[in-house]
Lab assay of single mutants.
Amino acid sequence: MFKRLMMVALLVIAPLSAATAADQTNPYKLMDEAAQKTFDRLKNEQPQIRANPDYLRTIVDQELLPYVQVKYAGALVLGQYYKSATPAQREAYFAAFREYLKQAYGQALAMYHGQTYQIAPEQPLGDKTIVPIRVTIIDPNGRPPVRLDFQWRKNSQTGNWQAYDMIAEGVSMITTKQNEWGTLLRTKGIDGLTAQLKSISQQKITLEEKK
């Protein structure tokens, strides 16, 4: 169930391209415009997507990853294993993690069937560096609404905000991946996880038929 919630949630996290980005210092504006741009692209490019579902990787690479804190999220997933990894191991892992996100997020976007969304009203940021933004996803086919909290983090150097995690039903996506990959990290280390991520990233994206 959580895996499905995570995939549905990713439908609204794909941010804007650099040329049309919203105010990078306001995570609420980023979330709002990102959702609108993403849904528009999914709707307008269905012919290309249906002809070649792996085209979704391109959308992810162009529109999402430049505005997601990939390395920060990847380091959180590694936890204690990050500090013990060599620079070469980290570089290989982050490259594999990025390719994994292209496949995983692309597969999530393949679930698009006309969903709509509501974003919580903007709250004062103050001096906060981590801000959760509640998004409610509404399914046109009558499924119950899904309420999610996207975690946005302020870059201490640039002042810009980027998304790095999502919490559904009190469970963090980062925590879920830590639990899912924990045994592999304990037995085969970061190299074993890197190899698995490379394998997963090679899987073809498949479209979910409308139910």
Rank of each mutant, 00 (worst) to 15 (best):
L185Q: 10
Y117E: 05
S199H: 05
K128L: 10
V171K: 04
Q107H: 02
M31H: 05
E33D: 04
G170T: 07
I174D: 13
I119T: 10
D127M: 13
L42Q: 15
A19W: 06
K154M: 03
G192K: 04
T175W: 02
R41E: 08
G106Y: 04
I137C: 00
Q89S: 12
Q202S: 11
A21V: 08
R57E: 05
S172P: 10
I138C: 01
K37T: 13
N141C: 14
A92C: 03
Q89I: 07
Y72A: 05
Y67E: 02
P53V: 06
L10D: 00
Q103M: 05
D191C: 06
L125N: 11
Q48E: 12
S199N: 04
T20A: 04
P144T: 08
F2W: 05
Y81L: 04
S199Y: 14
V77P: 11
I174A: 13
D32K: 10
I167V: 11
I133M: 12
V60G: 05
T20P: 12
Q196S: 15
Q89G: 13
N179A: 02
K3A: 03
Q69P: 06
Y82K: 15
A73P: 09
K29Q: 09
T116K: 07
E169Y: 08
P145H: 14
I138G: 13
Q178I: 15
T20S: 04
Q89P: 10
F150C: 14
P124F: 05
R90G: 12
G106F: 05
A51K: 00
E33R: 03
I200Y: 01
L184F: 08
T158S: 01
G114R: 12
G79P: 07
L16D: 03
G170A: 13
L11W: 01
K154R: 10
A88N: 09
Y105T: 12
P144Y: 12
D40I: 10
T38R: 04
R50N: 08
Y164G: 13
K188A: 04
G189H: 00
L193M: 13
R134K: 00
L30R: 04
I49P: 04
V60S: 08
Q36S: 14
L65H: 00
Y117P: 04
I205K: 14
L16Y: 03
Y82E: 03
S199F: 15
A96F: 10
L185S: 07
D32Q: 05
V68H: 02
R50C: 11
G79C: 03
Q69A: 10
Q46P: 03
R57A: 03
A85N: 15
Y164C: 11
K198F: 13
F39I: 13
K37Q: 00
L148I: 04
V131C: 01
Y55R: 06
Q178G: 07
K177H: 11
L11N: 07
R143D: 15
K211C: 15
A35I: 05
T194A: 13
G189S: 13
L78T: 08
S172K: 04
A108G: 07
E208S: 12
N52D: 04
V70C: 13
A9E: 15
A34N: 15
S84Y: 00
A75T: 02
L197S: 03
Q80Y: 10
V8W: 00
Q46H: 12
A14L: 10
T187V: 05
K37N: 09
A88C: 11
T175R: 02
A34I: 07
Q162C: 15
E99P: 08
D40F: 11
G142T: 10
A104K: 06
P87S: 05
L65D: 12
N155T: 12
A9W: 15
L76H: 02
A9S: 05
L30M: 07
G142F: 14
Q151C: 03
E180N: 05
V8F: 04
Y72K: 03
S201C: 07
G189R: 06
M166V: 09
F150G: 05
A92V: 12
K37L: 03
V77W: 07
I130E: 03
K204R: 13
A19K: 09
A35D: 02
G192Q: 07
L109A: 09
I13R: 03
G192T: 12
T58Y: 10
K83W: 06
N179H: 15
F150A: 15
M166P: 05
G182E: 06
Q123V: 04
A110H: 14
L78M: 05
I49H: 12
Q24P: 04
D149A: 06
P66M: 13
D54H: 12
N179S: 06
D32A: 04
Q46I: 03
K154I: 02
L148P: 07
G126E: 13
P140V: 11
S84D: 06
A104M: 15
Y105A: 15
Q162A: 02
L56R: 01
A75H: 05
I59N: 00
L30Y: 00
Q69L: 08
L42F: 06
G170H: 15
A75E: 15
V60M: 00
T38F: 13
Y82P: 03
P15W: 06
L148K: 13
T116M: 11
Q196P: 10
Y72N: 01
N52A: 04
P66L: 03
K3D: 03
T20G: 13
R134Q: 14
L101V: 08
N160A: 07
A14V: 12
G106R: 10
L78S: 02
A92W: 06
A108M: 15
L10S: 09
L10K: 09
L30S: 05
D40V: 03
T136L: 08
L30P: 07
R4F: 00
R90T: 02
L56P: 03
L76K: 02
Q46E: 08
K128P: 07
N179E: 11
L10N: 00
L197Y: 13
G106W: 01
A168R: 12
Q89D: 03
D61I: 14
Q123P: 04
L125P: 06
G159L: 12
M1W: 04
D32I: 02
Y93G: 13
D54P: 04
T58N: 03
Y28F: 14
A95C: 03
R98E: 06
R153E: 03
G106N: 15
T116V: 13
F94V: 01
A108Q: 15
G170E: 03
G142D: 03
M173A: 07
F94D: 00
D127V: 01
F94M: 00
A96Q: 12
E180R: 14
Q24H: 04
K177N: 05
M7C: 14
T116I: 07
T129E: 03
T58R: 09
Y72S: 12
I167R: 02
G74T: 08
Y105F: 06
R143K: 11
E91G: 04
V135W: 06
Q162G: 13
A14R: 05
T194C: 03
I190W: 14
P132V: 12
D61M: 14
K37M: 15
P53N: 00
Q24L: 04
D40Q: 01
T176E: 13
P47E: 14
M7D: 00
H113S: 12
S201M: 00
Q162S: 05
Q157F: 06
T86F: 10
F2K: 01
Y82Q: 15
